[in-house]
Amino acid sequence: MLRVSTTVSSTHCCTRPPEGGARRRRWVPALLLCLAALLVLLAPPVRAQGHGDIAEMQLEHTAEGLFLTAALPLELPSLVEDALYKGISMYFVTEAEVLRQRWYWSDKVVARAARYLRLSYQPLTRRWRLAQSSTPFSASGLGVSLGQNFEELSEALSAMQRIARWKIADEGVLDDDASYLVNFQFRLDMSQLPRPMQIGAVGRSGWTLQLARSMRAPALERTAEGAQ
């Protein structure tokens, strides 16, 4: 009788993916993260609802320098107001930049001016305090500043809204035969917020407060004595 011998052989399936595929899978999360960061950088800044440009603004050019007067349409976002009532101070910056316009080259910055405001609420006395300084407020609270107390938030905001004859450039840096452009803005200083609030406020319109306007500076106002 013819005997038939059969041998059964099996080959283990390799479950390890190819090296190239594993490398590609590791690149996918990094690529998605880069794309997300790029979208954030390219996204336009979000303006808070109800805030627009500054309608009431005047510039005065005299022999003493260039002065700015403005009335800001200031309305605090609800998140900012809630934080104030919880005892968290809010910081604001008023900035003005004077540029000499040049047709043959880019405009030249000839003067910059800034004022810093700190608004805080004192729950024990239920009073508002507004401090103003020509330099940024330090974390230690040291420095020279002018402070005012108010009974109501509306009174403090009214004081913040009015800017009267603020000197933004000395006459020595201005030429009579040149034309100048003034860029002005008022904004909430997000860098002064507590660190956890800074992270949570990024990209949220409820924390955005920025008013801005650009205006040409008038020519020097000459008196009758100076014109002779």
Rank of each mutant, 00 (worst) to 15 (best):
K108D: 03
G143W: 02
P18G: 15
R112S: 08
L157K: 08
R216A: 14
A55M: 09
S158D: 15
P77M: 07
E155S: 15
S138D: 14
H61D: 12
P45Q: 11
L211F: 04
W166A: 10
Q161S: 15
F184G: 03
Q198A: 05
S78L: 09
N183C: 11
L32Q: 08
L157S: 09
G50A: 01
D82L: 06
G141Q: 03
C13A: 15
D53T: 09
V80A: 14
M90C: 13
V110F: 04
G21E: 13
M160L: 15
D189F: 01
R24S: 11
G21K: 09
R26N: 06
A43G: 03
V8G: 01
A201E: 06
R112I: 03
P17V: 07
R25I: 07
V173Y: 04
A30V: 12
R129K: 07
A111D: 01
Q228A: 11
K167D: 11
S138Q: 14
T6Q: 11
V46R: 13
L68R: 08
W103F: 04
L193R: 00
R115F: 00
P136E: 10
Q148Y: 12
A131M: 09
R213G: 01
R100P: 00
A83E: 07
E152A: 14
R129G: 00
D170M: 09
A164L: 10
R24E: 14
L39S: 15
D107N: 14
W103Q: 07
S205I: 03
T223Q: 09
L181P: 01
A37T: 08
M197I: 14
S145T: 05
G87I: 02
T208A: 14
E171F: 06
E56H: 13
L188E: 00
L157Y: 13
Q58L: 08
T62P: 00
Y116P: 13
E97C: 06
A111Y: 01
F150A: 08
R129I: 02
S134G: 08
S106R: 07
F186H: 12
S145D: 05
P18H: 13
A22W: 10
V182W: 03
F67P: 00
T223Y: 05
H61C: 09
L76M: 08
L84H: 02
S214P: 05
W103L: 08
L99A: 10
V202T: 05
A139E: 13
Q192T: 01
R127W: 02
R187K: 12
S120D: 05
W166V: 09
E81R: 15
A113F: 00
L2H: 12
E225R: 13
R213F: 01
L193P: 00
F137R: 04
L174V: 02
R3S: 13
T7S: 11
F92C: 02
A139N: 05
K108S: 07
E171V: 15
G226H: 06
A156R: 07
Q132R: 11
E64H: 10
R24W: 10
P45I: 12
V144P: 00
